[in-house]
Amino acid sequence: MVNHSKKSINQYAGYIYLLPGLAWIFFVFAIPIIQLIGMSIRQGPVGQEILGFDNFIFTFRDPLFIKAITNNIKLLVIVPILIILSLIFSTFLYERIKGWQIYQTIIFIPVILAVAAMGIVFSQILQLKGLLNETLRVLRLNFLIQDWLGNQGLALGSVVGVIVWKELGFGTILFLARLMSVDKELYEAARIDGASGFQLMIHITIPQLIHIIEFYAVLLIVTAFSFVFDYILILTNGGPNNQTIVGEFFVYKYGFIYNRFNIASSVAIVYLLVGIVLMILRYQIVKRIDS
């Protein structure tokens, strides 16, 4: 049967399906990236003197860039947090606890709201005299009261909190959707064997969900690396004292505000290389899981 299919499909026909996508990527990514590479090795716009790798060397010497990439790596903490929370909530919903349909609707609402808009709201809530601290005061939890965004040790953590608030629903619904198509008998059989909730999670839920978990993890890694700009811009503007600067923010500031597009280009290239490494890693890991 397998042989049959290989014979019948004209392998070269594949190129036709690739064509529109490749054309698009060529226009939107390849041409700009070639220009970026051109700029990353020069002092000014294309046409000016070539410096070689100077911009890259300056980039890695710049403590601010090191801070930015460190913060991107720190933000990866959202990956385990969100996967675990999503697994828990989706299991609850899957078990059809009372009111699960309402919960399911509500948990997804933060996902659809614009970061730019909700960032404004959170910067109000997280103020020293904001709602969160007022609530803590009413609950007599005064020892927990903090300057969530104003304290340089806490600001990045607060950003993580907001990202988790925003992204939790997506993972939960993704996982729930996949769970609903898992054969129920698997669970029933395991329950008859006396498996605990935790065992069910380890032996059935996670293996059944592994592909969707992988997708969600990649999405979150990408968020942590290159889609946190809106959160940072509105919640902290990179501060206090540069403590919450991230790569994308660095690129934006250097490229547009500080008139250092060449440095910004080299940072973009570095992030692209990081992306390639991550994707090769992912490829290897998936291969191992599948075999």
């Binding site: 996508g21 990514f29 990649v218 990408v222 700009f229 910004a264 973009a268 992306g275 390639i276």
Partner: peptide
């Protein structure tokens, strides 16, 4: 791998080109 690693590229840098 090439296509998916573009995911990490921040759209901000593409704006000027």
């Amino acid at each position: 791998v090439a296509v998916t690693s573009l995911l990490v590229l921040s759209p901000a840098v593409l704006v000027i080109p």
